[in-house]
Design a protein around this nucleic acid. Structure first.
Length: 572
DNA sequence: AGCACGCCGACT
DNA sequence: GTCGGCGTGCTC
C-alpha cells in the first residue's frame, strides 16, 4: 500500500520539467496545504517549487522528502492553482513558470502598516444622477444576475459617451452590497489614477489599484488586502486579473476590444479569457464593455454565449458627432497633401469660436522615409531592415521597431553621394510644423511617444489641454484613449488609411475601432461635435461604416471575410 | 535549466 | 598517470 504524497511543480522553466514530481512528507511534519511554496531535493541540488496537490505515486520510483516549507501561508488559493493548471494546458506553457509569474509579491522586510479600520459594511456615497432608459435596463439585468449568482456574461455595447462608467459604478455598488468583491480591468496602467479617483469618490477606501510598477510595500499591502477581503474593489491592467480575491462577485473589462489585454510575452495569455475563466469559477457576473467590441466578443454574443446590453444614445443634451469624410484623391494638387482645405477651414472656425480641436495621425516622427536622390536607396535599420524615421527635435534617425538611434548621415551610406538626402511621407512632427506655420495664432500641444518620455509628461500635456491652455491637441494613438474634453468640438483624422494597410488580418477591425474611438472624443460637452476623416479609401467598408454608422454591417462583412479566409474567430 | 558522469587528447 | 574539453542523460 502506498501513501498520499505531495505533488510538486518545480520553479524551473524547462519543458522537460513541466510535470509533477512526488515527495514524501517528513515524519512529524504537517502536510503543507496545496499552493504552499517548498524547497525540495532535485537531483544533485535543492530547488524551489509548489505543492499543487496530493496523490499516490507510482510505487516503482523511490521518493525523497520535502526539504522545507517556505511559508505557513500558501502562495496560491485553490482557485489560482486551478487557474494556473488551466492556463498551462490552454496556452501550452510550463506550469512552473506560470506559478512563478503569478506568485504573490515578496513580504517587505520591515513590518507592514495594516489598514486602519476595515469598512464593516460597504460605504456608498449617495448619487443623484438620473440614468437613461438604456442604462437602467442594462443595470437591472446585471443586478438580477448578481443576486442569482448565475454567472452571466454581458457585452455592454455602448457608444462613446453613452455612460458606461455610470453602469459600471452602479453594478459595482450592487456587488458590494451583496458582500462580494469587484475587479475592474483597464487596458493600461496610465488609466488607473483617474478610474481610482472615480471609484473612490463613490466607495471610499475599500478601492485600490494594483499593477506591477507599484512599490514593494504598497504592492504587498494591496495583495494582502484583496486576499483577506479588506479591499473590495481592485482596479488594474491585465496583471490584476491574477489577484487573490476571496469573494469575487463582479468583473468589469473596460474597453474590452483593446489589444493591450493580451500579454505578448511569456507566459502568454489574454486577460479577457482569464477573466471569463475566473468569472465562471466564482459564479461571478462579468461585463465586457466597449463602443467597438472585438470581433471575438461580438461573435460570442451572436452565438449566445453572452448577453448584449446595448446603449445607443448619449444622455440628454449630448448628440453624437457628425462625421464628414474627405476624399484625399479629390483634393486639388496643393502644397499640403495631408491637410485638406475643408479640414483647415473647420480648424479655423473652431479657433475663432474659442473651441478645441484634436488632430490624430498614427505616425511618429517627422518623415517616415529617407532616401538618396542619386542611388534611390532608402535608409534602413541595421537590426530590423525597416526604414528609419527622421525625428526633427533630435535631428536623428530612429527605428520605431527596436528604438535604435543613429545620426542623420551627411552622405548616402549606400553610394557615398553627398547630395542632400530626401524625406518622403508625413509624420506627426511634420504636421505640427505645418500647423504652426499655417495657424500661428493657435496654441498647439503634441502628445506622442516622444513627448511623453519622462514620468508625468502624459498627465501634464493632457492636463494643460483640459484646462484649455492649448487649442489644438495633436497626437498619435495616445489621444484616442478614453479622455473626456468637453471643449473639443472638432476631431480630425489625418490619414485613416495608415492602420488599414498594415499587414494584419485584423487591420480592418482595428481601423474601424480606431475611427470610432477617436470620433468619440468630439462633442462631449454641450456643443455638438464634428469629425473629419481624411482618406484615400472612402468606400472601404470599415471606413464607411465607422463614419456613416451601421456597425452591424461592419461586423457582418468582417465576419464573412474572416470565415471565407479561414481567420479567427470564424475559422473552421 | 543545472549538474554529474563519461570518454578522449595534452600536459606535469 | 592526471586535467579538462563538452556530448549525454537525469531530476520524484
Amino acid at each position: 500500500m502506498g501513501e498520499e504524497c505531495a505533488e510538486v511543480v518545480v520553479r524551473i522553466n524547462h519543458p522537460r520539467l513541466d510535470r509533477v514530481f512526488h515527495y514524501r512528507i517528513p515524519e512529524g511534519t504537517e502536510k503543507p496545504q496545496p499552493g504552499s511554496r517548498v524547497t525540495v531535493p532535485f537531483g544533485p541540488r535543492t530547488v524551489e517549487g509548489w505543492v499543487i496537490g496530493y496523490s499516490e505515486p507510482d510505487p516503482e520510483i523511490s521518493l525523497r522528502e520535502i526539504a522545507g516549507i517556505t511559508d505557513v501561508e500558501p502562495d496560491f488559493t485553490e482557485e489560482l492553482l486551478e487557474l494556473a493548471r488551466w492556463m498551462s494546458g490552454y496556452y501550452l506553457h510550463p506550469m512552473g513558470e506560470i506559478l512563478d509569474k503569478i506568485s504573490p509579491p515578496p513580504k517587505p522586510k520591515r513590518p507592514i502598516q495594516v489598514f486602519a479600520s476595515p469598512p464593516v459594511s460597504p460605504k456608498v456615497q449617495p448619487h443623484e444622477l438620473v440614468l437613461t432608459v438604456e442604462q437602467q435596463i442594462a443595470l437591472d439585468k446585471i443586478k438580477k444576475s448578481l443576486l442569482c449568482r448565475d454567472h452571466s456574461r454581458f457585452l455592454l455595447y455602448g457608444v462613446t459617451g453613452s455612460g458606461k462608467t455610470e453602469v459600471y459604478l452602479r453594478a459595482a455598488e450592487a456587488a458590494l452590497v451583496a458582500g462580494r468583491q469587484v475587479l475592474y480591468l483597464v487596458p493600461e496602467i496610465g488609466l488607473t489614477p483617474q478610474k481610482k479617483q472615480i471609484f473612490q469618490e463613490r466607495f471610499g477606501e475599500q478601492v485600490a489599484v494594483w499593477h506591477h510598477r507599484l512599490a514593494g510595500r504598497e504592492k504587498y499591502r494591496t495583495w494582502e488586502g484583496v486576499r483577506n477581503g479588506k479591499l473590495r474593489v481592485l482596479i488594474g491592467p491585465r496583471s490584476a486579473v491574477f489577484a487573490p480575491f476571496c469573494e469575487l462577485g463582479l468583473i468589469i473589462i473596460d474597453e474590452e476590444h483593446d489589444s493591450a489585454y493580451k500579454q505578448q510575452e511569456k507566459p502568454y495569455y489574454h486577460a479577457r479569457q482569464v477573466a471569463l475563466w475566473r468569472a465562471r469559477y466564482n459564479s461571478a457576473a462579468i461585463i465586457l464593455g466597449s463602443a467597438t467590441p472585438s470581433l471575438e466578443s461580438y461573435a460570442s454574443a451572436a452565438w449566445g454565449r453572452m448577453e448584449v446590453l446595448s446603449m445607443k444614445k448619449r444622455p440628454a443634451g449630448r448628440s453624437l458627432p457628425v462625421v464628414n469624410v474627405v476624399d484625399l484623391r479629390q483634393e486639388p494638387a496643393g502644397r499640403l497633401s495631408f491637410l485638406s482645405e475643408y479640414l483647415i477651414e473647420q480648424i479655423r472656425l473652431r479657433l475663432e469660436r474659442k473651441e478645441q480641436v484634436i488632430l490624430f495621425l498614427n505616425r511618429r516622427g517627422f518623415a517616415p522615409l529617407i532616401y538618396c536622390p542619386v542611388c534611390g536607396d532608402v535608409i534602413k535599420c541595421k537590426n530590423c531592415s525597416i526604414s528609419l524615421i527622421y525625428h526633427k527635435q533630435t535631428k536623428d534617425l530612429r527605428c520605431h521597431y527596436c528604438n535604435a538611434v543613429r545620426p542623420l548621415p551627411g552622405s548616402c551610406p549606400s553610394c557615398g553621394s553627398t547630395k542632400k538626402l530626401r524625406f518622403l511621407g508625413v509624420g506627426i512632427q511634420r504636421v505640427e510644423k505645418e500647423i504652426v506655420n499655417l495657424l500661428p495664432e493657435a496654441r498647439v500641444v503634441r502628445l506622442d511617444f516622444d513627448t511623453t518620455r519622462r514620468k508625468g509628461d502624459f498627465q501634464r500635456i493632457l492636463g494643460s489641454f483640459a484646462r484649455r491652455e492649448a487649442d489644438i491637441l495633436l497626437g498619435t494613438q495616445m489621444v484616442t484613449k478614453g479622455h473626456d474634453f468637453p471643449g473639443v468640438t472638432l476631431v480630425g483624422v489625418l490619414n485613416a488609411d495608415l492602420s488599414l494597410n498594415l499587414p494584419d488580418y485584423r487591420s480592418a477591425e482595428h481601423t474601424f475601432q480606431l475611427l470610432k474611438q477617436v470620433s468619440g472624443r468630439a462633442g462631449r460637452g454641450a456643443t455638438p461635435g464634428e469629425v473629419v476623416v481624411q482618406t484615400l479609401n472612402p468606400n472601404h467598408y470599415s471606413i464607411r461604416t465607422a463614419c456613416l454608422g451601421g456597425d452591424e454591417f461592419f461586423y457582418r462583412e468582417e465576419a464573412y471575410r474572416r470565415r471565407s479566409l479561414g481567420y479567427p474567430p470564424l475559422a473552421i
